[in-house]
Amino acid sequence: MAMLVLLLAVIIGGLLFFAVLYNRLVSLKQQFTNAWAQIEVQLKRRYDLIPNLVEVAKGYMAHEKQTLENVIKARTQATQAVSIKDKAQAENLITSSLRSLFAVAENYPNLKADQTMLKLQEELTTTENRISFARQYYNDQVMLYNTAVKSIPTNFVAQLANFKETESFEIEDVAQRQAPSVKF
């Protein structure tokens, strides 16, 4: 009888322990899913901003057709990307194309003084910063989740309940870690 009670206690204890660990993994997963949703909101904001930016620049930079087309192309590619890896690559492309655009824009003083462009510049700066901070928060949450998935004893629960490691939203090189700098 004592053995039976002990066995029952171990089973109930084990189940409770499993539930606690399972809930922790669910909570961590929810947190990084929510963090990803935050990134997507900011990315959408940037996608909406780019056509306006190109439209304003077009009025002054008639001879820089290729540069403007590259920005639009990068935006289209980014909107079509599905996986985190593809999105990260597309975002890198947008950042570099915007950097080229602003480098060229330095040669157009009228564009630099344009009111709409100045407004868009502030919008773009804040959007880039928000993306950067949202990505940082997402990566923090992913790191917490991945650590839980790999560590003992949560890794046993993760294997049983099919919690898999997820990838962080990384950018390629250190130079690109900074938002495109615009000096108007």
Binding site: N34, Q38, R130, F133, A134, Y137
Partner: peptide
Amino acid sequence: EEVSAASGG
């Protein structure tokens, strides 16, 4: 708003 993004919204 930016720092709000850093704190998870």
